[in-house]
Amino acid sequence: MSTVAVTGANGKTGRVVVADLLEHGHDVVALDIVAGPGDRDRMARIGTSLLGADLTDYGQAVDALQGVDAVVHLANIPAPGLFPAAHTLNTNTVMNNNVFLAAAQNKVSRVVWASSETTLGLPFDVPPRYAPVDEDHYPYPTSTYALSKVTGETTARHVAEWSGIPFVALRLSNVHLEEDYRLVPGYWADPHLRKWNLWGYVDARDVAGACRLALTAQVTGAQSFVIAAADTIMRRPSAELLAEVFPGVELTREIGTYETLLSIDRAREVLGFVPQHSWRDVIDH
């Protein structure tokens, strides 16, 4: 087992990833810029300590990654619209650059990091070229948040070439905790409410599983994978939703009744990623 640094460890997804890695026998160095006494107590209950680190400072990034075997990098402004556009682009890009270069400086064995479904063209105000949307439907950033992820994927490719470290970008769909599923019935009446990501989502526990699998997958260079639930967040058939909301978009293959329109085929094949969780296990539909 390895020592894994998790950045953004105190965030919504980060806490689930930390707990999963600990449960599977890894030692975890948990890093977050938000690291007050209550945050440290929460992380202690999960089973590790929390180190405060501002990853926009390269020196802190280098220090924080010393002695670790691998990095799961989740720390970023997590969505568009939370801060002014330029701040989102600049902050995320600096953090990603610093973590990637610090990983190379410290000669870690693997970097797994949170890219985004937004790199694929979200919010699909312009319809996708085809569905299911896969890794090749890229790059189509429509916000500075998405652009920060595209820039990160480009940087990762070159740092991987220079360093020989495999970089795995997980293009995460809209992450849900189990308690978030109580909101799901509110999406059903109007299919346009969630058209922005083709009705996609992913359970945080499945994100944690994808991160863990990506740490040991047989990959080289820098590779990217769509990570989504196996189904959509709607109770209507996926092909029916696509035909109604995006009538000009063709399906490239047959799909299951409620199958995701964000293709996870490549993640399944290369990483062994098979989502285990669905809102359908929690909400009466």
Score class of each variant (00 low, 15 high):
69 D>W: 05
59 G>H: 14
50 L>P: 06
57 D>W: 08
70 A>L: 03
58 Y>V: 09
84 P>G: 06
50 L>I: 09
69 D>P: 02
57 D>G: 07
73 H>F: 12
74 L>Y: 01
52 G>A: 13
73 H>Y: 04
58 Y>S: 06
49 S>H: 09
78 P>R: 10
61 A>R: 02
73 H>K: 11
50 L>N: 03
72 V>C: 12
58 Y>L: 14
54 D>P: 08
82 L>D: 05
57 D>P: 07
48 T>E: 12
84 P>K: 04
57 D>Y: 05
82 L>T: 09
53 A>G: 05
60 Q>G: 08
71 V>K: 00
72 V>S: 06
70 A>K: 03
80 P>R: 03
57 D>H: 13
48 T>K: 09
53 A>N: 02
67 G>I: 04
71 V>N: 00
78 P>M: 05
46 I>E: 12
81 G>R: 08
46 I>Q: 08
73 H>A: 02
54 D>S: 11
60 Q>C: 09
68 V>K: 01
64 A>N: 13
46 I>K: 08
65 L>K: 00
69 D>A: 05
47 G>H: 10
48 T>M: 11
62 V>A: 15
69 D>G: 11
51 L>F: 05
61 A>N: 11
61 A>W: 00
62 V>F: 02
75 A>P: 00
84 P>R: 11
71 V>F: 06
50 L>R: 02
85 A>L: 10
68 V>M: 10
83 F>V: 11
47 G>D: 10
52 G>S: 11
67 G>M: 02
61 A>Q: 04
61 A>V: 07
65 L>V: 03
51 L>T: 15
73 H>S: 01
50 L>K: 01
47 G>A: 10
64 A>K: 00
58 Y>H: 15
54 D>R: 09
52 G>Q: 09
58 Y>Q: 14
51 L>V: 14
65 L>W: 00
51 L>M: 12
67 G>L: 05
48 T>C: 15
71 V>I: 12
79 A>L: 10
85 A>I: 07
70 A>W: 03
76 N>Q: 11
74 L>I: 13
84 P>M: 05
72 V>I: 15
50 L>Q: 02
76 N>V: 10
81 G>P: 03
79 A>R: 14
62 V>P: 00
65 L>I: 00
56 T>W: 04
70 A>E: 13
77 I>N: 08
56 T>V: 14
71 V>C: 03
55 L>S: 05
68 V>R: 05
53 A>D: 01
69 D>F: 07
63 D>A: 15
50 L>D: 05
57 D>M: 07
85 A>N: 14
84 P>W: 03
52 G>C: 06
59 G>N: 14
64 A>Y: 04
66 Q>E: 15
52 G>K: 10
75 A>E: 01
60 Q>L: 05
53 A>E: 04
63 D>M: 13
80 P>A: 08
61 A>G: 10
71 V>P: 02
74 L>P: 04
80 P>K: 02
84 P>I: 04
45 R>L: 14
49 S>C: 04
81 G>A: 14
51 L>E: 11
51 L>I: 12
65 L>N: 01
77 I>C: 10
58 Y>A: 14
50 L>T: 02
74 L>N: 01
81 G>C: 07
59 G>K: 12
61 A>P: 07
79 A>S: 12
66 Q>L: 09
83 F>T: 12
70 A>D: 00
56 T>E: 04
68 V>I: 11
58 Y>E: 11
46 I>T: 15
62 V>M: 02
63 D>T: 15
57 D>K: 13
73 H>C: 03
70 A>Y: 00
